[in-house]
Nucleic acid binder design. Sequence first.
DNA 1: TATTGTTATACTCTATAACTATA
DNA 2: TATAGTTATAGAGTATAACAATA
Lengths: 162, 162
Amino acid sequence: MKPLADDSNQAYSADECAALVAEIVPLVMRTIRSEMRGHRSPDLSVPQFRTLLFLRRQPGASVSQVAGHIGLSLPSVSKMVYRLVARSLVVRHSAPGDRRRICLELTPLGAATLQATTNVTRAHLSERLSALSPDEHAAIVQAMRSLQTVFGEPTLSSYPET
Amino acid sequence: MKPLADDSNQAYSADECAALVAEIVPLVMRTIRSEMRGHRSPDLSVPQFRTLLFLRRQPGASVSQVAGHIGLSLPSVSKMVYRLVARSLVVRHSAPGDRRRICLELTPLGAATLQATTNVTRAHLSERLSALSPDEHAAIVQAMRSLQTVFGEPTLSSYPET
DNA sequence: TATTGTTATACTCTATAACTATA
DNA sequence: TATAGTTATAGAGTATAACAATA
C-alpha cells in the first residue's frame, strides 16, 4: 500500500522534477522581473541586478569576469556596463600593470540602488510567500539550496586559464 | 554547504525564503533560457515557448488572453505573435461573430517545435538534476508545487468577462 | 463609447563578427 | 600572436502612447 497522504515518501525521477522546474521557474521569474523593472527609482533589469550583486562581492572584477559570471557574451556585458556607468552606478578604471584590463566597482549610488532593489524585491516575494506554511517554506529553502548546487555559477577558480 | 543534520525541522520565515528565491531562480532561469535559445532548430525564447504551451492548452485563444496569461503587454504579445506567425508556428484567423477578435492556433509545425523544445529542455534539466538525491528531488517537487500556487497564472475562469 | 488589436517609438538584452589597444 | 574590450550590426523582448477597426 502506498501512503498516498504523504507525498514526501514518494520517489520522483529527475525527469518529473525537470518538467516541473521548466514550468514553474519562468513563472516565478516573471514576478521577479516585473518587480525589478517598473519599480520607480531603482529600475534595474535582472542582468543588471546580478551584475551589481557580483561587483559587490568581487570589487575590481573585469568585464570578462562579469560576463563569465552572469553567462552573457563579452559585448553584451560591455554595453550593459556602459549603461551602468552612464547611470553612475558603476565606475571603471584600468588595472595598473595591464592597461587592457578594466576594474569595475560599485559607486555609493550603485550600492544603495542595489540594496533598495534587493529590499523591494525581497519584500514583494516575501509577501507572496507568506501565504505558505512553515513546512512549505522549509521545502522551498531546501529546494533552492539543492538547485544552487546544480545550477550555481561557475566559481572563479574554475575559469580556464589556458 | 554544511551537512545540516536535519534542516526540515527548522522554521524559515517567508523573508529568508524570499531572499533565496530571488537569488536562485534567476540562476536556474539562465540555464533554461540558454537551453531554449541557441539550440539548433527549435530556438524559441521563453515567452514564445510559454505562448505555444498556452495555445496547445487553449486553442483559439485571443491575443489578449495570451497577454494576460504570460503577463506581457498587448503590444509585446502582438509583435511576438507576428513573429510566430511569420515562422509558421501559429496561425491567426478572426473570430466569426466578432471581427475584432483574433483566434490563435498552433500549426502542426508549431506543435512539433513545442514538443521538440520541451524534450530538449527537459532532458537537459533532468541531466543536471540527476546529480541530486531522491530526497532532494522530492523537496524540489514540493517546492515547485507551492510556488505554483503562489505565483501561478490567473486561471482563465478568473478573467473578468464583463 | 468601449474593446481588440496594431503601429510608432524607445529602451534593454543578446549574439556574432570585426576592430583597437595592449601584452 | 594572444588577450581584453569596444564597435558594428541585427533581431528579440518590453513598455507606453497613439491609432484603427469593430462592436
